[in-house]
Design a protein around this nucleic acid. Structure first.
Length: 400
RNA sequence: GCAGGGGUGGGUGAGUGGUUAAAACCGGCAGACUGUAAAUCUGUUGCCUGACGGCUACGUAGGUUCGAAUCCUACCCCCUGCA
């Protein structure tokens, strides 16, 4: 069956709906745990089910390099390969091609780039992106887009946005499998005009769903929120709207309020692995010595397996001792936190109380200072570059 | 007992006369992570002070020197080989 989207309720700009795919239904707003390489890091499909995950995301770029699209196809497709029978959305790989490759060569036809694994030359075009995703068998595929990096000039952003439009049309033409829903991606950087124009143009092509891309690339939050607003303003209300790469608790609630239906984000699981756990009051750093003797769970009242079973002190110990179990337990907690947050948001929207819900949540959830945040991020990137970790030279590409 | 090697900050361990409060790694403390090349990365980590600066430190005690973790003497302890 082809994907269907039904809008069930709205509360101001916030929306509640349902996405029906051949692998099951997804209630929106929905969060998709990220399983880049056909695995949501540290958690098994059973865990995902228990957490309440309805749909997950995987990545065409990574799977094409390893183990290879053909391999996955030969082994029964992505669902079978990773033993996840629920809906799957695959990202086209556009994001990786542009964020990872300084050695890429771009022309209107497609992108030539070097594999970060072995330096081999690779090629991706709109047609190939569709072909690969059809071979993987995901329920929702993304068009190949050109997401500009943060800080690119207006001309570059405009060019990338227009290229994204042309590529969207080509992806659409390349589609062979009507069962797979193909989502277009709005670009346009931080310009209201470009955002709106991008959304309008893509809307005119009548895709089954629309994503907003180019956000969460190191910009201040206010810019991202505005870009979302400007994009949403020109998108049709009867199609799902997917905000790519967004997923901190405060961003989720804020962007649901702006009319977003779907999200994916590596943040909850990555932060979990490094000691950051979400609570209603904000993110805590479980590494801190103050948790060494805490017999209560990480978050009182949390319904996740981790909090129902283990003390904060135990998790703290696992984290400090580098025990692998920590990754699973922490990931379960953060994913459940986010998923529950969206369940609550959905309920509030249906009941007409989303505004109060959002206000209450955002009032209680402490967010870190943005300047410090962005500064630390820059330092991180600088350090990576200094160590050659962001160099495409294959001899540096082995770690992961 | 003889011969040889060695004793450095919470740990491992560099350092052989000044630029050494002492590399590096671990540990500790604080922070970052947003379509995952991330079990990663940043800062900090003797004591006192807001800072300038001061104080105490490289087994112990003396000594040489303008200046010592670095050289000399004695002592204590550890390791290896031979008795």
């Amino acid at each position: 069956m082809a994907m269907e989207f039904k809008l069930e309720a709205t509360d101001s700009s916030a929306r509640a709906g349902e996405l029906a795919t051949s692998h099951g239904r997804v209630q929106t707003p929905a969060f998709m745990p990220v399983g880049t390489r056909a695995s949501v890091k540290a958690v098994a499909p059973d865990d995902l089910r228990n957490i309440g995950a309805q749909i997950i995301l995987s990545n065409t770029y990574h799977l094409s390099l390893r183990p290879g699209i053909e391999t996955v196809q030969r082994l029964g497709g992505l669902h079978r390969f990773m033993a996840w029978d629920g809906p799957v959305l695959t990202d086209s790989g556009g994001f990786q091609v542009f964020s990872l490759g300084h050695l890429r060569r771009l022309n209107e036809d497609g992108v030539r780039f070097r594999s970060h694994l072995d330096g081999s030359e690779q090629y991706l075009s709109p047609e190939l992106a569709v072909e690969y995703q059809e071979a993987l068998g995901s329920d929702i595929a993304m068009v190949l887009d050109h997401p500009p990096a943060y800080g690119e000039s207006d001309e570059e952003v405009a060019a990338a946005t227009e290229r994204t439009h042309r590529w969207a049309e080509r992806c659409r033409r390349a589609q062979r499998n009507p069962e797979q829903a193909l989502f277009a991606i709005v670009q346009g950087g931080w310009s209201e005009e470009l955002r709106r124009g991008s959304a309008e143009f893509l809307a005119s092509l009548d895709f089954p769903g629309y994503a907003i891309g180019g956000v969460s690339v190191g910009e201040p939050k206010a810019l991202a929120y505005r870009a979302v607003e400007h994009s949403v303003a020109a998108l049709p209300s009867n199609k799902p709207r997917y905000l790519m790469g967004v997923g901190s608790p405060e961003d989720l609630v804020t962007c649901i309020g702006l009319g977003i239906d779907m999200f994916d984000c590596a943040l909850p699981t990555r932060v979990a692995r490094n000691g950051g756990l979400f609570t209603a009051e904000g993110r805590l750093n479980l590494r801190r010595a103050k948790y060494a003797g805490v017999s209560d769970p990480v978050e009182a009242g949390c319904d996740c397996y981790t909090c129902r079973t283990f003390s904060a002190a135990y998790l703290h110990h696992l984290l400090r001792a580098d025990e692998l179990l920590y990754h699973r337990l922490a990931s379960i907690h953060n994913l459940r936190f986010v998923l529950r947050l969206l369940e609550q948001a959905r309920k509030a929207i249906i009941e007409g109380g989303f505004g109060t819900f959002a206000e209450r949540f955002l009032g209680a959830y402490r967010v870190q200072n943005e300047e410090a945040r962005l500064a630390q991020k820059d330092k991180w990137l600088e350090a990576r570059r200094a160590r050659g970790l962001d160099d495409l030279d294959p001899k540096h590409g082995k770690e992961d």
